[in-house]
Every structure is written in C-alpha cells, then in structure tokens.
Design a protein around this nucleic acid. Structure first.
Length: 156
DNA sequence: GCCAACGTTGGC
DNA sequence: GCCAACGTTGGC
C-alpha cells in the first residue's frame, strides 16, 4: 500500500470534475514526464490512495482523496492526433506513455493549502511537494506524511 | 506576467 | 556523452 499526490489544474480538470464523472472515475492521462510515469508504472497498485492537489491556481493545495482503481495501461491520448497530448514519436506497438484510473474517495471538508503545508514543512520531513523547484505532477507520499497531513484537515 | 528551476532536445 | 538552448511548470 503506497500513498501518492496527484497534481491537477482546476481550470483543466479539478476535483469537482472528477466528482461529476460517471462513477467518479477518470483515466489519469497526459502524463509526459518520465519520472512521473515511472512512479505510476513501478509503484502504483490498485487500492493505493492519493491526495488530489490543485496547482496553478489562486489557492494551491490538497482538495481531496482519490484511489487508484486500475493499474497502468497505455495512454491512448498519445496516439490521438486531435489530442493536445499527442506524442508525434509515439509507437502504438511500444507505448511509452501510460495512465492509471483514479476514483474519488472524498473531498476534504477543508482544503489543505500549500501555505499551511509549508508551515508544517519541518514535521513533513522533506516532503517532495515542498522542495524548491519541484515540478513533478505525481509524487510519492510516505505513510507518516499522509497521516500527518490528514491530521491538518481536522485542525483546519 | 515574471522568473527560478528543472527536463528535454539536438548539435557536436 | 557533454552541454547550451529551449520549453514547461508552477508559485507568486
């Protein structure tokens, strides 16, 4: 059982979009970064939980919890000429971009803002999200970090 | 809109 | 394999 954090831009696909999907499930397509892909491919298992994080918005922060409900399979958007995620060098016989399916578990009662997370940086023990220049859209969360952050929800 | 940080590309 | 140039991310 692993924990993760998934970034999404609410202007493109936010937690409310996930909530409105049939079965509140969505393929996590469009990941075009090898490190993030490798986390999905090598680490993500069905049943793993992830924080749903809003980035590039007025109040970046953790908005909810999602669950991995399907493990990696080829990201079809890489072969879709109409998709902004088209990979011109993509080879359908040997797909290099992958995705998982995620399902909403619940929205947090109160989002945990990036600002609040920063205030707890020491307790979060070098949380990847808080590192300078961090740009990973998928990153691992330790069990200790997960529990600590969920504690902040009640405190909020 | 700015800019720091990082990843990717491509010439050599 | 090096590394400069370029593109992207994401907070502010």
């Amino acid at each position: 059982m692993q924990y993760w954090l998934l970034k999404s831009e609410p202007g493109t696909f936010g937690i409310n979009d996930l909530a409105m999907r049939p079965k509140q499930t969505e393929p996590w397509y469009g990941i075009r970064n090898y490190t993030a892909r490798n986390f999905m491919r090598d680490g993500m298992k069905k049943g793993d939980l992830a924080f749903f994080y809003h980035s590039s918005c007025a109040e970046p922060g953790i908005m909810g919890i999602a669950k991995i409900v399907r493990e990696v399979y080829p990201d079809s958007s890489a072969f879709d000429p109409k998709s902004e995620w088209l990979d011109p060098k993509g080879d359908p016989a040997n797909p290099r971009w992958l995705m998982v399916d995620v399902k909403l578990v619940r929205k947090l009662k109160h989002p945990i803002s990036l600002q609040v997370l920063r205030e707890h940086a020491d307790a979060l023990d070098d949380f990847t999200l808080l590192r300078r220049g961090n740009r990973l859209s998928i990153l691992p969360v330790t069990a200790a970090q997960w529990e600590y952050i969920l504690g902040l929800e009640i405190e909020n």
